[in-house]
Design a protein around this nucleic acid. Structure first.
Length: 484
RNA sequence: CGCGGGGUAGAGCAGUGGCAGCUCGUCAGGCUCAUAACCUGAAGGUCGAACGUUCGAGUCGUUCCCCCGCCA
């Protein structure tokens, strides 16, 4: 693999991004930074953006007395500002109102139509305006939307076009069996398989009464419903005029990874591959599914007043500490919990004491003993063996998207360094060569720690790297006073 | 039976059949180069409950109890 392409879902701009949104983006950003380091940044693409069509957007806009495009322009800027404030390294920010995207979405649905996979039908059933989703009678709970128990769905009868999703069941099941790496972690692959075995139904992919959307090319009275509008963003960007000039489609599509939350796994693991197959495209390479976390044991939301603004949190604790706290707390794919207490504990302990303090111990000792850390000498063999072992584990982990485990590897390396200092007692060593060997061994270890940490805590790693280079002390994570 | 996740040391989490682990906290030592940091040792678990499969179960099966999430 000589390129890497990673995407986040495109966000629906009806709410402000919160710590949960940021989590998805942190995962993608960490992997993007890792591969940029490994393959060179020219060989990595990282895409995020906003999903800007649909009835809810039009409704929100009209409530605010603005046009839909004004509304989404404002939101797109808001998202961009937040990601840039968090130093997210996305190569491009895609918006579904981009004319090149709209053109691509039309071509895609037209291809499926031409292949006979899209047929005209009449939809009769329940529609929840809040979800912008259709429900069958048995989906409803006491006649109410399963996601919005206070809302009454509307009985709808309208002409729609359907996609023959059912046709792709066997093919998809086979594909998943034959490509065990396609959906990860494993438990989500098993979940998807069970969904497919339960039976796939054809689904409506156009709407008759939503004007804020992309026109259906083969029936101008309809607009494209979310699936054929939002999902193609991952591919449309590679086919923009600028992208084609850079050969992006050929270089990147074969190495594409979609990061998604567990709530939208069906659309990414089932519908999107079927859409691609139908339109004659090869399907994306991997789907990385992450779980959800609660904040202080409560789900994120306005009702719990815990929809934390990641930027504010970053200003207080540093961006690095925020992403570190999330990525090191639970494995990708699992659910977890996030709290300020845990963030502070990790900040002081794992980042400050274990990593930051080790950096300072070494630099300070070298300065005290007047040792040049950058002299090129042979280092302690046992240590260099240990470093390679850890590095290999780290690479295995991060390339299987196990960021949680990879962080533990680096943490172990720091602990090893601290123990090494204690064992060797460099402050007592009088022999110059021995002293040099110990301290320079530690410098090499620290360089590796910094390298391995840099996708995870990029700002601190850069500072650490400069401090080590200049052999000047730096307090990376000033101690937080904790209320007991 | 709506769908799904989970119940492992005081707290937070690993551990998909083979001697129960990690981080934090607690207690006791050591060190004194460092952000009162670091190192060592100890205490602390009948792995939610019961039954079953197995030479062997935290791990597989069945039943039950309890938490939690469901527009990232």
């Amino acid at each position: 693999m000589n390129t890497f392409y990673i995407t986040t879902p495109i966000f629906y701009p009806t709410g402000t991004p919160h710590i949960g949104t940021a989590y998805t983006v942190f995962i993608a950003d960490t992997l993007a930074k890792y591969y940029a380091q490994k393959l060179g940044s020219d060989n990595v693409l990282f895409l995020t953006g906003t999903d800007e069509h649909g009835g809810n957007i039009a409704k929100k806009a009209s409530e605010l007395g603005v046009t839909p495009i004004e509304y989404v322009n404002d939101y797109a800027e808001r998202y961009k500002r937040i990601w840039s404030g968090l130093n997210i390294s996305n190569s491009y920010f895609i918006r579904t109102t981009n004319p090149e995207h709209e053109e691509f979405a039309k071509e895609l649905i037209q291809k499926s139509f031409d292949n006979g996979d899209i047929y005209e039908g009449t939809y009769e059933g329940w529609y929840c305006e809040s979800c912008e989703s259709y429900y069958s009678e048995e989906d409803l709970i006491d006649g109410k939307c399963p996601n919005h128990p206070t809302k009454l769905p509307i009985f709808t009868k309208e002409k729609n076009y359907y996609f023959k999703l059912s046709k792709y069941s066997d093919w998809l099941l086979n594909y998943i069996e034959e490509n065990p790496e396609f959906i990860t972690p494993i438990k989500w692959r098993e979940y998807v398989k069970s969904l497919i075995r339960e039976r796939l139904k054809d689904i409506p992919v156009t709407r008759a009464n939503v004007s804020w959307g992309i026109e259906v090319p083969f029936d101008k009275s309809q607009t494209i419903y979310v699936w054929y509008d939002a999902l193609p963003n991952y591919l449309s960007y590679l086919n923009f005029k600028d992208s084609l000039e850079k050969d992006y489609y050929n270089r990147f599509w074969g190495n594409s990874v979609h990061v998604v939350g567990k709530d939208i796994i069906k659309f990414h693991a089932i519908l999107w591959p079927a859409m691609l197959k139908s339109a004659g495209y090869p399907i994306f390479k991997k789907l990385l599914v992450h779980g959800f976390f609660t904040v202080n044991g409560l789900k994120i939301g306005k009702s719990n007043n815990n929809a934390i603004d990641p930027l504010e949190l970053g200003e207080k604790y540093t961006n690095d500490a925020v992403r570190y706290a999330l990525l090191s707390e639970f494995q990708i794919g699992n659910d977890g919990d996030f709290s300020i207490e845990r963030l502070e504990s990790k900040y002081n302990g794992e980042l400050g004491n274990n990593f930051g303090n080790l950096l300072n111990r070494v630099i300070h000792l070298a300065n005290l003993k007047d040792v040049n850390l950058h002299e090129d000498i042979e280092i302690d063999k046992d240590v260099s063996t240990y470093i390679s072992t850890i590095e290999n584990e780290y690479i295995n982990n991060i390339e299987s998207f196990k960021i949680f485990e990879a962080i533990q590897n680096v943490s172990e390396l720091c602990s090893f360094g601290n123990k090494y200092v204690n064992d060797k007692k460099p402050w007592e060593i009088t022999d110059t060569n021995e002293l040099k060997s110990v301290l320079i061994t530690l410098r090499v270890l620290l360089e590796k720690v910094i390298e391995l940490y840099s996708p995870i805590i990029p700002d601190s790693s850069l500072k650490a790297s400069n401090a080590l280079k200049n052999q000047e002390k730096i307090i990376l994570f000033p101690k937080l006073e904790l209320k007991s």
